[in-house]
Every structure is written in C-alpha cells, then in structure tokens.
C-alpha cells in the first residue's frame, strides 16, 4: 500500500496541472470542513453546499497558499469565512436567537425523558447533539480544537480572534457543553 503524499506534495502536483490530485485533499479534509459548516447551518444539505463551495474557493486560490501555516489551517480559514458570510447574509434576513435560545434548548432537552434518549442514542450522538446546541462560534472552536486538532494559535488565525479570545471562547464552550451533558447524566470516561 502506497503512503498518501503529504498536503504540500499534493498542492505542488495540482499547481503543476495534475488537477485530479486535488481529490486527495478533498477526501482528506471533507469531513472536517463539512463538520465546521454543519456547526454553522445545522442542515446537512446546506452544509454540504457550503463545504463544496469552500473546496472550490480553495482550489481557485491554491496558488496563493504560501505554506506559512498548515494547509488545514488555511482551508479552515476559508471554511470559517465562507460559513460566516453565509450566516451574516441569513441573519440580515431573519434575526436568530442567541443565548436565550441556548438556554431554552437546554431546558427542552432536559424535559425529554433521559433514559429513552440514552437508549436511542449513543454517547457520540449525545455529544454531537449537545455541540449542535452551542452557539455556532463556540461549537466551531470546540470542533477546531478537539476534532481538527488545531492549536489555540491556529484557531485564532482561522477565526480572526486573538489567542486570548479563543481561550475565553473555548472555556465558555466547555462549560456550556459540560452543563448540557451533566443535565443528561452523561457518563464521562
């Protein structure tokens, strides 16, 4: 079995005209980009459209990638900007609830029968559901940090925040996530 070429090697191939090589990058990062988009829009079809848009933008601008950061960090920056632009456009049309909604959703989650929920869903689904109930900006930070393996500094570069702000956001997200999981007597490892 041949080892997959690293990101930089694939980018060089694409820039030299080997367009099909881009599929390696797409399949390598599609899950992460799709998850980030899903955190923002909450609908799979829409998230898939946004993720596709991210990869097309990344392809068009590939020559502009200088390798100052990891390719994944650069790609997630495009994902963040694309999702945020979409979200802002949507917000201009309809105002969405913020913190209040989060509290309301937590309450509605708590009122549902816990045992049946735990029976129906595994721990993974429960965590996913809890993350989906966080504000998108906090869900994104959790996703980038825990799932995509980005450092605080890289997350700051992606989101355009300072490292200190990312730390604050990460702390808040963890606290809210823990509170949501505690409400369901989630068993931690």
């Amino acid at each position: 079995m041949h080892p997959q070429p690293d990101d930089i090697a694939v980018i060089q191939m694409v820039l030299q005209g080997n367009q099909p090589a881009y599929a390696i990058l797409v399949s390598r990062y599609q899950g992460y980009v799709f998850t980030i988009a899903l955190r923002y829009v909450g609908q799979r079809e829409l998230a898939e459209e946004l993720a596709q848009d991210v990869f097309v933008k990344a392809y068009r601008c590939l020559a502009g990638f200088k390798g100052y950061s990891k390719f994944s960090t650069w790609l997630y920056t495009i994902a963040h900007t694309t999702c945020l632009s979409y979200k802002r456009k949507k917000q201009a049309e309809t105002l969405l609830p913020g913190e209040d909604a989060m509290q309301h959703m937590a309450e509605s989650l708590a009122t549902e029968p816990q045992i049946s929920r735990l029976e129906q869903q595994g721990q993974k689904q429960l965590i996913e559901e809890a993350i989906s109930r966080l504000p998108a900006a906090e869900a994104e930070v959790i996703t980038l940090y825990y799932l995509a393996g980005q450092t605080v500094e890289e997350t700051a570069a992606i989101t355009g925040l300072t490292a200190a702000n990312v730390k604050v956001r990460l702390f808040r997200a963890r606290q809210k996530l823990k509170a949501l999981l505690d409400e369901h007597h989630f068993t931690t490892v």
Partner: peptide
C-alpha cells in the same frame, strides 16, 4: 470524553 467521542461528520 469529548476527545474520544467527537468524530467528523461525513
């Protein structure tokens, strides 16, 4: 727990 259970959606 979060690190162990979080998986990318496909």
């Amino acid at each position: 727990t979060v690190a162990a259970h979080l998986e990318a959606e496909q």
